[in-house]
Design a protein around this nucleic acid. Structure first.
Lengths: 219, 219
DNA sequence: TGTACATCAGTGAACGCGCGTTCACTGATGTAC
DNA sequence: TGTACATCAGTGAACGCGCGTTCACTGATGTAC
């Protein structure tokens, strides 16, 4: 997961040198500063100079570790992946009977958590990926693929048991469910105006998840 | 729908003057140039100077019509709304029996069309809205609300006929379906690598739509 | 334990570029009589 | 129908600012003996 691909597992400076513990701290400080800035302004008005200021270091230092602001953002997106296991655990839970809905709820909760924590970074990741940037596409795929594949497996099982229609393409359906989950946190803010609570939202998403994955009706 | 809110229905220059036909053309040329630039680069690297160059006019002219690049983007997002009626027509179609699936398919098709046409602008609209920008939130709401409300109505009807569980909040469910539709076109590109065709995708989305709106199973 | 040296890490200061923005102006179009 | 004038629309050129980027340098840390 280095900033260059040339020496896997080792974080490196732009020069290709392996970083010592002190350097790693400075680098992380720059990343944290970037994340913080992204929280309250748009990517559009964030500069290297500003990041350096916030991290209490100089722009020259920034360039030791990152080519530009985009690359720092990419790193942040990579770090965000590390929480996904929490979501995976949920999916592996039981989908049988009434407990299936609880499993679906657990997934929705874990996802919402993930998004609330990394809101700004994930939005940019998705924008860049949707705009065709390969590196961001890969990061997003790495984050979502395990989740989607497991969901697709469940759907396939349900199809083989004739609970779910063959009209649905398992992976495409999983991806569609993924997009609901990704939008959850954005909706939370907006739907509050319509008197829809966080719980309503989670229940509703879980309900759709449950219905599509198991092919069974709720209630 | 003017660039200022002060005189509704009339497009105005920054000075507040109502525009003549010649001025309207110039303004539209600037908007078109912006849309074109957004198509092949990120918003991040689009400048007033560049837009003016592409529109074969001067930066000074740009400032006659827009405060900044963001405002031009906002206008483009407003113009994109005008196609939504095509989607609405679909929703008002029949949801009964086997024709329900065709209706769902029509919605997915119309939405995909909409996104393929305005890809870049809609991405930015959503990013800005998700980042909390009120003006972009309003534009997005104006575009989606009619669609979501109609979907929510259908879901409510199905609940009253006891076809759909009360666990789903009608409007929240509609919003969730909306997020699938919005992601459709982004997925189209990425899922192609997994051997999922455009039709698979539309069928799958339509399937989920049908299932959630009517509460019935497919096949 | 102390000293010399090598490498790692960080930075001050400067440069130049390109952009945002504005002003005073010119040219185009419309209207009155 | 022609002329004078008012308003609309567009622009060349300039200014200043702030950012990206780099270089030559200093200070910190580690290591050999």
């Amino acid at each position: 997961m280095g900033s260059q691909g040339s020496q896997p597992g080792r974080v490196m400076a732009q020069t290709g040198r392996v970083l010592g513990p002190r350097a790693l701290k400075t680098r992380q400080r720059l990343l944290d500063a970037t994340a913080q800035l992204l929280r309250d302004r748009s990517v559009l008005d964030i500069s290297v100079v500003e990041i350096a200021r916030k991290a209490e270091t100089s722009p020259a230092t920034f360039y030791h570790y990152f080519k530009d602001v985009e690359e720092a953002t990419l790193q942040l997106a990579r770090q965000a992946i590390e929480e996904m296991p929490a979501v995976l655990e949920q999916i592996d839970g039981s989908w049988d009977g009434a407990r299936g809905f609880d499993t679906a709820r657990g997934i929705a909760e874990a996802f919402l958590q993930h998004w609330e924590t990394h809101h700004a970074v994930l939005l940019i990741r998705n924008l860049a990926a949707d705009n065709g940037d390969r590196r961001f596409q890969k990061v997003r795929r790495d984050a979502l693929a395990p989740v989607l594949e497991r969901l697709a497996d469940r759907i396939l099982e349900a199809q083989e048991a004739s609970h779910v229609s063959r009209t649905l393409h398992p992976f495409a359906a999983a991806a569609a469910l993924g997009s609901i989950l990704e939008k959850l946190s954005a909706h939370a803010g907006e739907l509050a105006h319509r008197g829809i609570s966080r719980d309503d939202l989670i229940d509703t998403c879980a309900g759709i998840l449950f219905q599509v994955v198991t092919g069974r009706s709720l209630d």
